[in-house]
Design a protein around this nucleic acid. Structure first.
Lengths: 123, 123
DNA sequence: ATATTATTGCGATTCTATTGCAATAATAAA
DNA sequence: TTTATTATTGCAATAGAATCGCAATAATAT
């Protein structure tokens, strides 16, 4: 399935790039000037995830956040921690790698590590 | 608010103790022989969390899982990883501590680290 | 200019979790 | 033991996030 270039995709990417953080669907929608349907935004976000452009983080509040991928070539590798600030409700990718000795016999497919608290801006 | 001893609380604790894993509300409900309302189970689980008996993990599927606390005395300290098996849909506490250098200026309140994949039983 | 089909909008739907309120039952007090 | 107090429960309604089906639209190829 060949992808097409659409205003929605451009707008979503622009918002995420500018923010430099992970964002939820509703936060992204708020930042887009043109009116785009909620379902469409979700579909665009999920497509970007499939294509290795974005990665998805699920915070302890159960919400999904999407952030730009840095170096996901063939497959996603998001072995870094995320920080969710309960004050400003933002999620950012920390430059800290997740590093653990996985017990024998376990097959790792994905990592979802979120630290929450107050970020350095709000502290 | 003083807590009371009720059949629901006993049943929930028994199930979680037997399982030795983190469980979701619906999984717990299935394991309880007597019929208990969904809302009640959630309330019991959340109360246990408040009281330091259980801790809550939110997986990448957005669902909440509850597990017994080991050594939470004054406050919760769940600095360990969790593993969610996408095959058998269980979540277990790994005996591996989360160990990261938190960037300066950040105030940590909670950790929610879930690795997902296939557990050693299903592999 | 036309055909193809990826993408979108809309409304409905699913799923998880929570809440208000009256009824029930565990515990304290008499 | 009986009565009073109030934590707990059940039920139905509600909130909130995310997804889905389907027809309409629009990006790209012909």
């Amino acid at each position: 399935m060949k992808r097409r270039k659409t205003p929605t995709k451009e707008a979503v990417l622009e918002v995420l790039t500018k923010a430099g953080k992970a964002m939820s669907q509703d936060a992204i929608e708020q930042q887009i000037s043109i009116d785009i349907n909620r379902a469409t935004i979700y579909r665009v976000l999920n497509r970007f995830c499939d294509d290795g452009v974005l990665h998805k983080i699920v915070a302890e509040n159960g919400k999904q956040y999407f952030a730009l991928c840095n170096d996901c070539e063939e497959q996603h590798n998001h072995d870094h921690f995320h920080f969710r600030c309960t004050q400003c409700e933002t999620v950012e990718c920390l430059p800290v790698e997740v590093n653990l000795a996985i017990p024998k016999g376990y097959l790792v497919e994905n990592m979802n590590c979120v630290i929450s608290g107050v970020c350095k801006t709000c502290v």
